[in-house]
Every structure is written in C-alpha cells, then in structure tokens.
C-alpha cells in the first residue's frame, strides 16, 4: 500500500465479519471475514462456483446474506431499503456482461444516475460524464448507443458509468471474462490507471498479470471460503495451501 492512502486509512472501507449465505440449502459463503482498507486493491480468484462473485455482490446487497455483518464506509448493511440505496451510492460496480442500458446513449448511461439519484443539474452531470469518458478514452463515442460499440468499448463505458457517481470503492465482477482476447488489454489498462489513482478496488478476475501489477493482496476462494490471502509475490511464488497450488498450476500452467 502506498504512503498517501495509508495515511488517511483511519477506518476501513469495508468490514465483513462472520458472513454466511445460503441459496436454499446450498451453503455458498462460509464464515467470511474480510477487511478492506481505504485505497487497498484486492484481487479475488478461485474456481467457478467458489462464491467469489456472490461475495462481492453481497457488499452492495445485490445478494442478501443470512448471517454476519457488512459495514461499508462506516454504514452497517441492514434490510432497510433507504440505507441499502445510500450504501450503493458509494459503491461502483462493473459487471461481466457490462449491463449498459441499451436504450440510452453512452452519455445518458453516464448521466442518468447523476441526475436522478444525485439530483445534479443536467449540465453538471454532462460535464462530469464527459470528463470521465475522456479518462477511459471513449469521449468520441459519447453520442452512440451501446449496441454500436465493441465489447471492450462497452466495458470501458460501464466503468465510466460507475465512476460518474464518484464512488468510494469499485467492485469488478469478472470484467474481462466476456471479452474477445484482443480487447482485454484496453479494459485492464483503464483498471490499472484507476488503481494508480488510489481507488479502493475489489476485483474478481482471472487476469493474473493484472493481479501481479496492481494488487496489494490476492485472495483465493474455494467452496465458499477464503482459503488463502497474501501479497501477490508471496501468493504466486510461495502459495501455502495445496488447493491454491493446484489452482495456480491449472491457470498458469499452459
């Protein structure tokens, strides 16, 4: 963690304690404890079905947990709709399948929550949107519709859309898994840029290059549990658990 972000990390960004979740009888998340400091970049990996997506979807209550405590930016998650909506305004999310709104232009995708949720005047929202679209290098496509863009461009717009809300933390749910190989880099570049600017990030991804470049901590999950967490050098070079070693050999071994 760099010095600047460590200095103002007086209270953690996210605190998860004793988190348990079931789908019906199926126990997807088991006794998860996780604290994310301000400015920390975390990469979560693990085999499919290990509960990593479910974990980050619990942080903004897209999934409801049955046991345990989640505190985001000092606010404890309850079932109260108003509180959930308030927490979500501080948490940006990027999805595997982009989930852009196809009936709105790129610019409107970026403005809609600013004007309706944050109640900003349209002109101000548009200025913010254009600035951020500039940052993800897609400002020239502002008036196009999502259906007219490539996958990589759409995902960059989705990142911009989330950033327009000025979130304190960004969640990435396999942001590059649905992309053609030649488009993965343009999205990762934007994410690396974002990490350099000090954004708190939780990324579920299999891009181990990305993890090595920007992550402060890599978390390995299997069967609903956090099996191992370590800084990237330790994680990749000296994994402790056998399951981590097996997983790494499977994804890096070809």
């Amino acid at each position: 963690m760099n010095q600047a972000t460590a200095a103002r990390a007086d209270s953690p960004m996210i605190e998860i304690a004793g988190l348990n979740k079931w789908y019906g009888d199926f126990h997807v998340l088991r006794d998860i404890d996780l604290t994310v400091a301000r400015g920390e970049r975390i990469v979560i990996c693990g085999p499919s079905g290990s509960g990593k997506s479910t974990l980050i979807r619990c942080i903004n209550h897209l999934e409801e947990h049955q046991e345990g405590r989640i505190v985001v930016n000092g606010m404890t998650m309850t079932r109260d709709v108003k509180r959930i909506e308030q927490i979500r305004r501080n948490v940006g999310m990027v999805f595997q399948h982009f989930n852009l709104f196809p009936h709105l232009s790129v610019l409107d995708n970026c403005c809609i929550s600013q004007t309706w949720v944050q109640k900003k005047p349209r002109a101000e929202a548009e200025r913010t949107a254009r600035e951020i679209l500039e940052r993800v290098q897609i400002a020239d496509q502002a008036l196009k519709y999502p259906g007219q863009l490539s996958g990589g461009q759409q995902q960059r717009v989705a990142i911009a859309r989330a950033l327009c809300m000025q979130p304190e933390v960004m969640l990435f749910d396999e942001p590059t898994s649905a992309l053609d190989p030649e488009m993965i880099k343009e999205v990762l570049d934007v994410m690396v840029e974002l990490a350099r600017d000090g954004m708190t990030m939780l990324c579920v991804t299999h891009e181990m290059g990305f993890a090595k470049t920007v992550a402060d901590r890599v978390i390995f999950m299997d069967q609903g549990q956090i099996i191992e967490q370590a800084p990237p050098e330790t994680f990749f070079n000296h994994p402790e658990s056998e399951r981590t070693q097996l997983f790494l050999s499977q994804i890096l071994g070809h």
Binding site: E85, Q86, R89, F95, N99, F101, H103, V117, R161, M165
Partner: peptide
C-alpha cells in the same frame, strides 16, 4: 429484460420506481 439491467440500476442506488420508470419499462414497452 435481462436481470442485469435492473442489477446495474440497483448498483447505482436507484429506487424501485426509478429502476422501473427509467430502465426497465422503456425497454420492455418498446
């Protein structure tokens, strides 16, 4: 309408009527 549309709207802090009125219904009615 794919559930991801509503999830994206939720993730940005929109309430029920905003999600329906701004995101889901315009697409569904079309």
């Amino acid at each position: 309408i794919p559930s991801g549309q509503e999830e994206a709207a939720k993730a940005m802090g929109m309430g029920y009527w905003q999600r329906m009125g701004l995101i889901v219904l315009p697409q569904a009615l079309k």
